[in-house]
Design a protein around this nucleic acid. Structure first.
Length: 143
DNA sequence: GCCGTGACAATGG
DNA sequence: ACCATTGCCACGG
């Protein structure tokens, strides 16, 4: 067997990254999700930061809707390369997502993937609740 | 294998 | 509501 793993397919993307990508890809147009939310949905709670790195390492021209990922406050997170923050905001508005004072109202544009059976009406009730943004499992704190 | 870094998050003042 | 501090974790040098 001739040499093999010369340029082997180093997933380069750990299972974690692959998982993150899969979740980000599911964010519907016109909606946004937070880093912590993505991490939790990917099955890795408290790995919000890793989501940020995964986004940062995305190749230019990626088909992932990376612009729909915001921080827990509904803001565009600052990154190393300046200038892209405006690009992200543009992409968001392009989808009809409003930014009030550089901020997106998560209660309105936040993506709520069906986890179980959320009834309508509960949504309005949830508004104003001190949601820990940790989603699903409060486990521990911070993350 | 230890140390510093970082597209995050929660808490307290 | 804003700012500073603390906690968490994978990754790279």
């Amino acid at each position: 067997m001739p040499r093999r793993p010369d340029v082997s397919p180093p997933p380069s993307a750990s299972a974690l990254r692959a998982r993150i990508h899969a979740v980000v890809r599911r964010i519907p147009r016109g909606k946004v999700a937070t880093y912590g939310q993505i991490a939790a949905l990917a099955g890795f709670p408290r790995h919000a930061r890793q989501v940020g790195y995964a986004m940062r390492d995305l190749p230019r021209g990626s088909d992932l809707p990376w612009h729909r990922v915001l921080n827990a406050r509904g803001e565009v997170s600052p990154r190393a390369a300046v200038g892209w923050e405006d690009v992200q905001r543009d992409l968001l508005e392009q989808e009809g997502i409003e930014l009030a004072r550089e901020r997106v109202d998560l209660t309105r544009y936040g993506w709520k993937p069906r986890t179980g059976h959320a009834r309508p009406g509960e949504a309005s009730a949830a508004r104003g609740k001190p949601r820990s943004t940790s989603h699903a499992a409060p486990r521990r704190t911070r993350g």
